[in-house]
């Protein structure tokens, strides 16, 4: 009898299924995609310009190499970001000024696009801590590592956190961790950052805390919600700081890092 009840339960729970299907999608005209990053850490402005492609196309996306790219600081000083080929533009030794608004300008693909972003002062990481946990959910036990920092009180802070393990850095936009201080303003924050598994003794764990503008935080949050397949009834392109219909975003951010070897 027990067995029958269990089987019935399984029928109910296991009825759903997934399969890959063909969907006929419209061809839309190509749109420019601009990903701009100004990393205060290495004083470098990196811009990548590409074009959208049809959804089921498996060729690499087309890049734009003949655009004129420049960055303007809060004092109106314009610096050119030169092309280094393959759709990438790079300006090195560009010294950051924190709490300054930077404007990135791209003249290409028949239009001038601009985006503004505030370069936020970095928030210092305290040393990484770690702790042993017994396994649960059927997984084996191991070490969890915690990112520690003091959130500045009285201001809205937005963070993106990046984890690295044994030299590999998980910094794809869908892998970064989102943290804001809506519920934690002014507190000492202790947050575990997980890779797929717990860490083991001997692992080198790296963490990077990016203090970002709200627009970059929101963009990352919205992008993460559509990147992994969305169940929203009305998915849309993430809200960007680019004008004139360009996709992508421009993010200027300050960085704080720490590394620990688990032992």
């Amino acid at each position: 009898m027990k067995k029958i009840a269990y089987i019935l339960g399984l029928i109910v729970l296991a009825s759903s299924c997934q399969k890959v299907i063909d969907v006929d999608l419209n061809e839309s005209s190509q749109v420019i995609v601009i990903e701009g990053n100004f990393t205060a850490k290495d004083s470098t402005v990196r811009v990548k310009i590409s074009l959208t492609s049809s959804y089921f196309n498996s060729d690499p996306s087309m890049t734009v190499d003949n655009a004129l790219v420049s960055i303007t600081d809060g004092n109106g000083v314009v610096s050119v970001v030169p092309s280094i080929g393959n759709g990438v533009y790079e300006l090195t030794s560009y010294d950051p000024t924190f709490d300054m608004e930077y404007t990135l300008t791209v003249n290409g693909f028949g239009e001038v696009y601009t985006a503004k972003c505030n370069l936020v002062t970095p928030v210092a990481l305290e040393p990484i801590t770690y702790q042993f946990f017994d396994g649960f959910f059927g997984a084996e036990g191991g070490y969890a590592a915690f990112m520690n920092f003091n959130d500045p009180a009285g201001v809205e802070n937005y963070y993106l956190a990046v984890l690295g393990l044994n030299g590999e850095v998980f910094d794809n936009i869908d892998e970064v961790f989102l943290q804001n201080d809506q519920l934690t303003d002014g507190n000492f924050i202790q947050r575990p950052l997980f890779a797929n598994d717990f860490f083991d003794i001997g692992d080198t764990v790296f963490m990077e805390l990016r203090a970002v503008d709200k627009i970059a935080f929101d963009y990352t949050s919205e992008l993460q919600s559509i990147a992994g397949g969305s169940n929203s009834a009305a998915p849309g392109n993430p809200t960007t700081n680019w004008n004139n219909g360009a996709l992508g975003f421009f993010n200027a951010y300050g960085v704080s890092q720490d590394t620990v070897i688990i032992q």
Partner: peptide, 9 residues
Amino acid sequence: SGKYEIGGV
């Protein structure tokens, strides 16, 4: 109706 690459995805 299309796709693009951003932030490595």
